[in-house]
Write a protein that binds this DNA or RNA. Sequence first.
RNA 1: GGGCGGAUGGCGAAGUGGCUAACGCUGCGGUCUGCAAAACCGCCAUUCACCGGUUCGAAUCCGGUUCCGCCCUCCA
Length: 529
Amino acid sequence: MRVYNTLSGQKEELTPVDSSQVKMYVCGPTTYNYIHLGNARPLVVFDSVRRYLAYRGYKVAYVQNFTDVDDKIIKRAAEENREPRELASQYIAEYFVDADRLGIKRADVHPRVSEHIPEIIAAISGLIDKGFAYAIDGDVYYRVKAFAEYGKLSHRSLEDMLAGARVEVDERKEAPVDFALWKAAKEGEPFWESPWGKGRPGWHIECSVMSTKYLGDTLDIHGGGSDLVFPHHENEIAQAEALTGQPFVRYWMHNGFITVNNEKMSKSLGNFFILRDILDKFPADVVRFYLIATHYRSPLDFDDGKLEEARKALGRLKNTRILAREFLQSEAARSVGKEDEMSSGLVADVLAFQEQFIEALDDDFNTAKAMGFLFEMARAVNSFVSRADVKNQAHQDALGQSLEVFESLAEVMGLFQEPTGNGAQVDKLLDILGELRTRARQNKDFGLADQIRAFMLAIGVKIEDTGNGSRFRYEQTPDLADLIQECIDLRVRFKKNQNYQEADFVRERLQEEGIILEDTREGARWKFA
RNA sequence: GGGCGGAUGGCGAAGUGGCUAACGCUGCGGUCUGCAAAACCGCCAUUCACCGGUUCGAAUCCGGUUCCGCCCUCCA
């Protein structure tokens, strides 16, 4: 496997410190509001990296922090007249709501700055002892010029930085580039006791401390957005390596930005989209697909049209699964059937695409390229399904094997999240409406058939007719009550037309699914049996 | 000013020395269908911002030009 390493500017063979395990640390959000789409990209990207490493047989130790002590949190809390810690806790909880919806696997550890103050103080003391830091008036600064390799990650020299220095002028610092490890508390700010007085950690030290605490002195992969390269990650290296004397990180991975109209999406520009709002309009796996359909290091421009396109593209993949499952679940009597060119050809194609899928991901996690092979696989499967013989056991076996491969690869990318909620009962109601529509079609009552289809469409369910029966596709589980009400409305119509046969059919079918209708003077009401 | 990256069909997006420039969306034919949808079959870039060079051979390597984004200040 090869990984692009920001440190070297090249793709390098991935060789973890321990050959069976990969230690990963990903910079998590500063929790002072809901996360936006830009924050979601590294989450999805590195979650996919993690899943793929696991798929390739590595044990993955995954740590993602929360920065819950920070200027912005303090500021926001003051504005809302709340306790900073309480504000941060709330948004950590909200973070998990969003991340769970996206199918982001929980990290093995989610350390918080506020719970690691003693370790941070110890680290700062260590840096002072070794001459890499100095205290002034309750602040502690990192002495950048003491760390000879400063700038190696962001590929710039100290001279460059000093030359173009627009860094705030603080006369007390030895050099403008020195950065804070510990900040003395101002009036009204939260603080912890320390050898330098009351204060709190600076921004960069927490990641150095928490990553090495949970993963050891040398991590394999450290990930984050490319805006963290400088200064955040550069400073992490300076802190950690000065303290431990060991290489801090073997592979630095940075994802590109999401842009809006080709401008970086960021909190400071105000052009950001809250992830939760997007998830209200698009299924989570569509968002996920959108985020990995482009290589992680490339910029990714955002607008609703892109998500719409992602919805359609992913829909194609989901369709393949539906068609294949339908074929496999067919109740038609099976005949023995021999393996033939068709069935062996399918399996061979699918296995070849799987191999290429793996090759693509082995090369710096090229998810975009890998997706291409997933589509190729989908076409091979669809094509097979359209020509194969349901009753032929050999065809069944070939498709079963192929679908298994297809689904396992989709799973690696976190696609195909099953709809949640009361799906089973909804599906039964859909079946009833489907049966009513099939009966209408058989009676050549296409007006009624189309009306039912129109209703389905209105609640987000597409009907597709097949040789025997219809199938339903939906992205958001429809509301059960809407479906029941439609059944009732149809029954009222049947009764009005004195079509008691159909009216009774509705009542009986509902009853079979555990829904009791009771006719009253005002109309029908329903309840669960 | 310094550092990093980018420019591929109508759109999105792979491709980093040599098979017909993946794949998706859109569009156009055809099959299927009560109509539709989905699916299937087929078509849609002699060309990869521009100029020059290296090479038997370049979208891919080198030099230059133009344009664009990001970092150097909090940001994923």
